[in-house]
Nucleic acid binder design. Structure first.
Length: 425
RNA sequence: GGAGAGAUGGCAGAGCGGCCGAUUGCACCGGUCUUGAAAACCGGAGUACCCGCAAGGGUACCCAGGGUUCGAAUCCCUGUCUCUCCGCCA
């Protein structure tokens, strides 16, 4: 959520930004509603002031003044109720409009849609095979690593069982990521896999509704989380932090659940797009200036790259274009890993994403900080980034490390946890 | 799942329906005293929102949301969370 005052004072920029992001919003309505809200607050305050005055006189009033004052108080109460009711209605309209407005965009981020993303750099050498590269589904079938049929029987299409060395591979990826992040000064967490809808909304997810990506639990205000970003960011909801304690760097291991509504027919093969996966996520809270959050953003991207470099998986780094940023992100970098079995002759596939959400999430979550040189409090900036998203990382490992004989070499950094150098049938 | 107790400012801890945004202690900041410090004494300190160029003024906030009342931290209802006891359980 953007600051209301900011929206009203920077109308043109906000409107332009919405166009760049492909979002339709009625900024004029916001300005109009805010004006009405402010005048309702003013008149409500004045009415309450008068009521305090009247009720304050009653204890000292003589018997015959008393009934007139009580009568006056009654009338004021009625007026106050009416004003408050009106204010509630206006504020709800205002809220609905304001939450639709996306965050502002970093001036250097490319403008446009999916195809306008800017490639910042590539790393690694794509493996050359003297055989026809298989995709992860075929590799896994030969090595008995994934049971899709059981997944479908038990939970439906989009669910899967990892099996045999794939289980060890997933655990190894998790261990590797956690070890790395601990050494980078992140506080390690496992988090709840469920969260209140208010937390989901604060982070920027829409838990219920037609195009929701979220599974919600019937008869509760809980939903399955789509990422630990939700639980890590929500962990400090409504807290006031100390500047001296910032930045805070959290890392969370969780399951992620996504309905993938509307994604049918798009890359449905294998475990690229699934309803449940395991992920190690980074989350950061910094002081409320783009210098501080920008620095942590760069650090998060650096860590993501180092993880894939250590795994020996070629990738490219993408500066996501305005139309693809979603609501909360101010700037977003994606890592796309090379997946030799994807498409005709291999394609890049998104494996991580790192966003600076500035104060957009913090404002709705109420996460503030105090600094000694300023009166009052300010909103923190929040950032999130993927360390390892297991399903997709497994795809990248299997496809890049496949051998002519059908086996898969285990990346060196994972061997201590997988317990072997090569996965064979 | 059942029974009970509780939630007040950074912490501790008071608070008969009106004089309570809230006593007090600790911690904190400024000052006096002192060679310096401690002690003592004096003073200051919350957050959000609204009006105002500003100085300043106003309103709200005693877990949250409703209700009773001219008036609620205080009474009633609901929810959330915490603690204790019983049962069940990985």
């Amino acid at each position: 959520m953007l600051d209301l005052q900011f929206i009203c004072e920077h109308r043109d920029e906000v409107e332009q930004n919405c166009r760049n992001r492909g979002v339709q919003v009625d900024v004029a309505a916001v300005v109009r509603l805010r004006d009405e809200r402010n005048s309702l607050i003013s008149s409500g305050d004045e009415l309450r002031r008068r009521q305090k005055d009247v009720s304050g006189k009653i204890p000292h009033a003589s018997a015959d003044e008393r009934s007139a004052l009580v009568e006056q108080g009654k009338q004021l109460r009625a007026q106050i109720s009416a004003t408050e009711e009106r204010q509630k209605v206006i504020e709800e309209h205002l809220r609905v409009e304001v939450i639709r407005i996306p965050n502002m965009t970093h001036p250097d981020a490319p403008i446009g849609g999916e195809n306008d993303a800017k490639e910042i750099r590539t790393w690694g050498t794509k493996p050359k095979f003297d055989f026809k590269a298989l995709d992860h589904v075929d590799i896994a079938a030969k090595l008995d690593l994934i049971d899709f049929e059981a997944g479908a029987r038990v939970a439906g299409h989009g669910f899967y069982y990892l099996k045999n060395d794939a289980v060890m591979l997933e655990m190894a990826l998790v261990q590797f990521a956690l070890t790395k992040l601990r050494s980078e000064g992140f506080t390690l967490y496992t988090t709840p896999d469920l969260a209140r809808d208010s937390v989901l909304e604060g982070i920027g997810f829409n838990p219920r509704g037609d195009e929701t990506q979220i599974y919600s639990i019937a008869n509760t205000d809980l939903s399955l989380v789509a990422t630990a970003e939700i639980t890590l960011g929500g962990a400090l909801k409504d807290q006031t932090l100390d500047l001296a304690g910032l930045p805070m760097k959290f890392c969370g291991l969780s399951h992620c659940f996504r309905t993938e509504a509307g994604a049918h027919g798009r890359a449905t093969r294998g475990i690229y797009r699934v309803h449940q996966f395991t992920k190690v996520e980074m989350f950061g809270f910094t002081a409320g200036d783009v210098e501080a959050s920008g620095a942590l953003h760069a650090e998060i991207v650096r860590i993501e790259e180092e993880i894939f470099q250590a795994l020996g998986i070629p990738y490219r780094l993408i500066d996501t274009a305005s139309g693809d940023l979603g609501g909360p992100a101010y700037r977003k970098y994606d890592l796309e890993a090379w997946m030799p079995g994807r498409g005709e002759a291999g394609e890049y596939g998104e494996v991580t994403s790192a966003s600076n959400c500035t104060d957009y999430q913090a404002r709705r979550l109420g996460i503030r900080y105090r600094s000694p040189d300023r009166k009052g409090t300010q909103f923190v900036h929040t950032l999130n980034g993927t360390a390892i998203s297991c399903a997709r990382a497994i795809i990248a490992v299997l496809e890049n490390y496949q051998q002519a004989d059908g086996s898969v070499v285990v990346p060196e950094v994972l061997r201590p946890w997988v317990g072997k150098d090569v996965i064979t049938a």
